[in-house]
Design a protein around this nucleic acid. Sequence first.
DNA 1: TAGGATATTGATATCCGACG
DNA 2: CGTCGGATATCAATATCCTA
Length: 354
Amino acid sequence: MTSPLRLRIILGEDDARKLILPAGTPVSIEDLCHTVKTSFGLQQDIRLQYQDEDFGNEFMNMSDVSEVKDKGTLKVIFLQSPQEENVRTSQSQATESVSISSADTDDTEPISSSGSSPSSRHWVWPSVFTVPQFSYEAEFELEKANTACANGGTLLNPSPKLKSQILERLAEEIYKFKAYPTDSDLTDVAEALVKKHPCLREQGSFNGCYGWKISLKYKMANLRTKLRGLGCTEVTINSIKNKSGDNRQAAFNVKKPKRAEVNYCPQHPKGQTSESLEQERVAILSELTKRNNDSVVSAKMEKTFSYRRQEVLQGQPMVADFKSRWPALFTAREASVVKMHLDVACNLCFVVQN
DNA sequence: TAGGATATTGATATCCGACG
DNA sequence: CGTCGGATATCAATATCCTA
């Protein structure tokens, strides 16, 4: 009765993943959606489509769990636009759900699970890390070694080139979720790697992949260094040069997103710089004096979101200063926006308390 | 709350392949 | 042959987390 269900889940173009439901058919569609979301770390709400035999296996909206078949394929449809998703700090932190009318959608990044924009994150760390496809060359070599491994039990000692390719691709995948993965995150990845490619298992390592974890750690640290050099805000915020006065120590107060926090430290919108956004901030001050001008103010507030975030993360401003710089944030109409800046508020409270 | 384990950045060492 | 650059690895100094 409860034989496990094996499903193919299509998350996007060129991105299909395997999902195993040990308990068999889920109790409800909601239950299944929830499982899919947590398994693959999807932050957005989704619905599912199944392949209907009556219509040449076209994808149709699911209406009943009986449509889920072992070895069936389900397609994930994301419900919210990425713009709306961007604006929320996180679902777990927001105490009330806040609906935002998205202003201009000019620079909306298409949400595709395979090619996400480097400036924003839509995913939380998945409960099961999916090892990505490597280059054709690397996959070929691994497949050959996996076969040899299955037959004779011989492990592969990867060439520096292969190892580098593997680390590079894994780091890219990890970075989609986190710039600062924890030790256990990296253990997840290393374990997933040697599970998918048994030839990469390490002899003499207590869990068979300790070395991979260490290498991934180095890789991520070096990746951050590289991105820091390129001016990626999320990591430059933690560079020594950006630390003030007495805090000039590497490991002091490393800023990273809180649990499940999305869009923690976004890059500025395309074509915008700190200088141009500072001008926008000044413009907001004068726009505020006009009547019936809410939509203009809201649009400019949304546009300057990244700038405000950096101000808070970098400077820990005094609440009075911040309020005088961004009065629109404290008006009744923008009260909901304050919720979206929840950790802004937390930081400010912290400053006030001290 | 003390202290050991582990994490951070940034500088640097080591290795290796590409290139002239 | 030398040297340049990229990738991986190591180090120092320090902060923070975890456990007892």
